[in-house]
Design a protein around this nucleic acid. Sequence first.
DNA 1: TAGTATTGTAGTCAAATTAACTATAAGTTA
DNA 2: TAACTTATAGTTAATTTGACTACAATACTA
Lengths: 259, 259
Amino acid sequence: MTYRNYFVYMQIENNRTQTMMVKKFIDEESGKVIEEKVMNAITIDCVIFGFDEGKLEVLLIEHAEGISKGKWGLPGGWIKEDESIDEAANRLLRELTGISNLYLEQLKAFGDPKRFPLGRVITIGYYALIKKEDYDVKAGFTASDAKWYKMDDVKHLIYDHNEILNYSLKHLRNRVRQAPIGFNLLPEKFTLLQLMQLYQEILNVELDKPNFRRKILKMKLLADLKEKEQNVSHRAAKLYKFDPDIYKKLTEKGFNFEM
Amino acid sequence: MTYRNYFVYMQIENNRTQTMMVKKFIDEESGKVIEEKVMNAITIDCVIFGFDEGKLEVLLIEHAEGISKGKWGLPGGWIKEDESIDEAANRLLRELTGISNLYLEQLKAFGDPKRFPLGRVITIGYYALIKKEDYDVKAGFTASDAKWYKMDDVKHLIYDHNEILNYSLKHLRNRVRQAPIGFNLLPEKFTLLQLMQLYQEILNVELDKPNFRRKILKMKLLADLKEKEQNVSHRAAKLYKFDPDIYKKLTEKGFNFEM
DNA sequence: TAGTATTGTAGTCAAATTAACTATAAGTTA
DNA sequence: TAACTTATAGTTAATTTGACTACAATACTA
């Protein structure tokens, strides 16, 4: 079969113009016009990690419309024509969660031809680490619900979103040992124990308190706030915050956080 | 301005159907049909690293056609509709260099709206490390020439290919410290000095021979071939090869190659 | 054939780092 | 005040690192 021309017709749903394309082409041999649905689009899906009560969590949304209505998946959306993909990821997160200026990094593109049932859609995965205290989850846009799930409670998600989630968890486990990005999951002020528990949870290891303490303090990555925890039912721990200048220096020369 | 319908017409060049799209739409207010060129396509660009005479090299091609005719850039191409992006990257490399089964990894997607002059094209960067001995460079497909460039000799490349190249070099520098991927650049059999020089070149550091030796041998990553170099004008060094089983174990538990 | 140059390989040693501990201080709750 | 929880300081042996020295093996060259 040889083609001469393609005519592609785009259906419009809710102003998201890239939702569906119908490809029409002429089969030169038979002369017939053949019409088929096709997708040749790029989306973004975000894995948003949070941390609460010593457990790693991920933000999922319930779709309000379309073929995945009522099912849970990663928040995501379409890339607009005039924005870069990083901008798109930031915009989508702003729309979906109301926060900007967070730690956001591209994971990779997922492009199995069958990953999306209606046609070919390549998605670019991003992952973000957020301080849960900073914002309220609210379902917006095309989501009917949005909720934090502990990693263990995540069940079947739409499309290949389980795969994307697993990949990003693996990626996070690696990254967290090479850059001090874990801080992005904690509140502004935190104790050393909280930080240690974060590493224990993400890396799935047991750590020794005195040794962890020594190691992390030697890096000089933490600024002592000269404050203590309030309203705790035990000896109050010192509060620290994370020093972005030192962080910058450390990441530039590359460093190792082996625990 | 509101849209009702889009009609997208795809021009076909050389059987690469995603080359150009002309978008026609009706402006509801004026009733006029507006036509504009648009690209909404995804490509792959590969950074192929080699290593020769102690220097890191990259494979570039000269474009034989299209708007970048006569200019140099990274080898790349379009993703076919029925292949995954990893498959596409492997296929493109096979077409362009004749080799398969090499170390190939996705970098990330580059999506500046202006990166490609004719419209919106998002490209997914891949990087590969190859043993130069394994193959002959031959320009194929849409390339009029293909050549190895030492990293220092790379000048201005088309589109954002300099950016992609810089990014992948930075990425390689990081990866090489976290996984023993450097081996992919060396011949099947190599000496410890060759390996050390590879690290020196990539990481841009000076290393101490005895210490390097001790460190790398302790990892048990190398299999002693009980062979020696031939035809060298000095004491012949032992040849080693890289043990894929141990490599697998090491990468799974994550490891650190800090030098 | 002796000397020189080059690269490979082994070993030394002090300093730094790590892992596994113990001990104690500072709070809270009952 | 006693019991309990968590924070923090310190000890120690084992391991790893970095900066070396020394010497072995080989080839070239005078």
